[in-house]
């Protein structure tokens, strides 16, 4: 995984297309983990609760992943889903507060 210095220092936007609406929670959970980049022991989608209502996506982290995120200043994981010509796309926006 290559990296570029971020001018804002903290923005993580992860996006991926999903094949079916039923895949949205799993995709959001994977993207959330990718954005948080926790150690291998915490890298489990079971620790990410995703609830979707229409196009609203709510992400909740479970302990100990939530503690890991708090330690790194991640107060909120925002996720959204939209429909394109090719299908649905989910995006996770995460900020690491300094």
């Amino acid at each position: 995984m290559s990296a570029t210095p971020a001018p804002t220092g903290a923005v993580q936007i992860r996006t991926a297309p999903v094949a079916r609406p039923g895949d949205v929670p799993a995709a959001v959970a994977r993207l959330t983990l990718a954005a948080l980049d926790p150690p291998r022991t915490l890298r489990s989608t079971d620790l990410v609760d995703v609830v979707t209502v229409a196009h609203e996506v709510v992400v909740e982290l479970r302990e100990p992943l939530a503690g890991f995120a708090r330690e790194r200043g991640c107060h909120r994981v925002a996720a959204t889903r939209h429909t394109t010509r090719a299908g649905d796309v989910v995006t996770v926006v995460l900020i690491r507060h300094r």
Partner: peptide, 16 residues
């Protein structure tokens, strides 16, 4: 300073 990953979640996306 935090970084922005330029490479997407390649392993995650493989399934998708």
């Amino acid at each position: 300073m935090t970084t922005i990953a330029t490479d997407p979640t390649r392993t995650d996306l493989a399934v998708t």
